[in-house]
């Protein structure tokens, strides 16, 4: 049984069909990159998986159980922008997820529970390289640091699936390469299943174990909204070792989540 299964998903806004006949099985531990032209419904697909949007037709199930169409802590997300809270410090941003879980009414922790949460948050910040920045506010940080924070903030909830919506699109090339190394390392360390929407084809192939291309299969020139996009290419990348964009694989992590059997 597939880890995450999408069955015949359609997304329509009134007359306009955005996605049609999307059926996918995604394995646990996969790193799926989604590419495609603008307006092909990449972000719509991500929103459907996130639960932010209800598909017009079709079902999504996680390990056989239907996924509720609302956002919850089982699916983490990092957007291109606005992923961190401007009114909280770096530490506060990461603590927030722990506070929501432990204190449903006050949404705050006190005393020893708070100290334990701070220790956990600091360890997470350490692993994304923000240990020295924990008292800064997001406005005082660069775009790359803000995305590091957004990733740490999502990972503290230990989500089953991490959804990335063009997470590195606004970063300059050097920082982007650093972030590629970071997300690859975290993906292996945490055994994450990642679904990433990107415009950057090199990034899609460099990071992913599987690349999906969304585009319209059919096109009616008189009514361009009549047909939605589907998956036109579904490529399993089995030889990750040769990808030059990747940092060397740590010995102990090698082979844990590397897809050698093909994911589709």
């Amino acid at each position: 049984m597939a880890f995450l299964a999408l069955k015949n998903i359609w997304v329509e806004y009134g007359e306009k069909v955005v996605l049609e006949r999307i059926s996918l099985d995604i394995d646990e531990g996969a790193f799926v990159s989604i590419i495609g032209p603008s307006g092909a419904g990449k972000s719509s697909l991500l929103r459907v998986i996130l639960g932010q949007e209800v598909p017009t037709r079709g079902t999504i199930s996680l390990e056989g159980a239907a996924l509720p169409a609302e956002c919850g802590p089982d699916r983490g997300v990092v957007f291109q922008r606005y992923s961190v809270f401007p009114h909280l410090t770096v530490l506060g941003n990461v603590l927030l997820g722990l506070e929501f879980a432990a204190a449903p009414f006050a949404a705050r922790l006190f005393g020893s529970a708070r100290r334990a949460a701070i220790a956990e948050a600091e360890a997470m910040l350490e692993s994304v390289g923000l240990a020295d920045a924990k008292d800064l506010y997001p406005a005082q940080m660069s775009g790359g640091m803000q995305q590091r924070l957004a990733i740490a903030q999502a990972l503290i909830k230990r989500p089953r699936i991490l959804l990335l919506d063009e997470p590195f699109g606004a970063l300059d090339p050097g920082i982007r390469a650093d972030m590629h190394g970071l997300i690859t390392r975290l993906w292996r360390e945490h055994g994450l299943t990642i679904i990433m929407v990107t415009h950057d084809i090199k990034e899609a192939f460099g990071l992913g174990t599987r690349v999906l291309t969304l585009d319209k299969r059919r096109h009616d020139p008189h009514a361009p909204h009549r047909y939605g996009a589907g998956v036109v290419y579904d490529l399993a990348l089995t030889r990750k070792e040769s990808a030059h964009a990747l940092p060397p694989i740590p010995a102990e992590a090698a082979g844990i989540t590397i897809d050698t059997i093909g994911n589709n």
């Binding site: 996130l50 932010q52 809270f85 929501f100 879980a101 009414f105 949404a107 957004a150 903030q153 999502a154």
Partner: peptide, 17 residues
């Protein structure tokens, strides 16, 4: 930004949170 609300929900918040 809508993203902030969505992000908070994925962090386990309810509407009150």
């Amino acid at each position: 930004p809508r993203e902030q609300v969505i992000k908070a929900l994925t962090l386990g918040a309810n509407s009150w949170g």
